[in-house]
Amino acid sequence: MTPHDEARLIAAARKGDSRAYAALVDAHQQAVRGFLRRFNGVWADADDIAQEAFVTAWAKLNRFEGRSSFRSWVSGIGFRLARDARRARGRAGARDAAWLQTQEVAENEASIEDRIALERAMAELPDEQRAAVALCLGEGFSHAEAAAILKLPLGTVKSHVTRGREKLLRALETSDGH
């Protein structure tokens, strides 16, 4: 979707055009859901939060100034909703290995052990570090986009990504040794 198409759809959605908004949701759902799944760890909850984020975004669309992309803006809303939900639920509830049984991707792309080790290591990362890793390494957002989404300085995001990546690599190396 070109920025022009996106701007046109946003303008129509602001006027209440549900088809235009559905097209926006359709174009960005994978990135937002992917980020929230990586951040949250529990897929079903993450998809519910993604849905809530898109609903909130539509209600607040008049406040969207276009300084970031629509995808970044919705991801930011989703991040804050997910963070609040995690705080309410407690960290222990975030761990859920059952998701690995319902993989939607090719099984031979990464070993099941690596995916479990990654999931565990991700759950151990502090919230902002996990979010930065999920955005930049998982979904391919730029550091600047992640900084805008997480409302953090650019340097902090870069440092979170570097440190988070190191921890994840260490976790994979450790799991290799067992």
């Binding site: 994978q30 799944r37 990586r38 990464a110 690596d114 080790a117 990654l118 994979l172």
Partner: peptide, 13 residues
Amino acid sequence: RLRAALRAAAAPA
């Protein structure tokens, strides 16, 4: 392995 695991885990259709 990290790249593959990140790509595999949580990628929604």
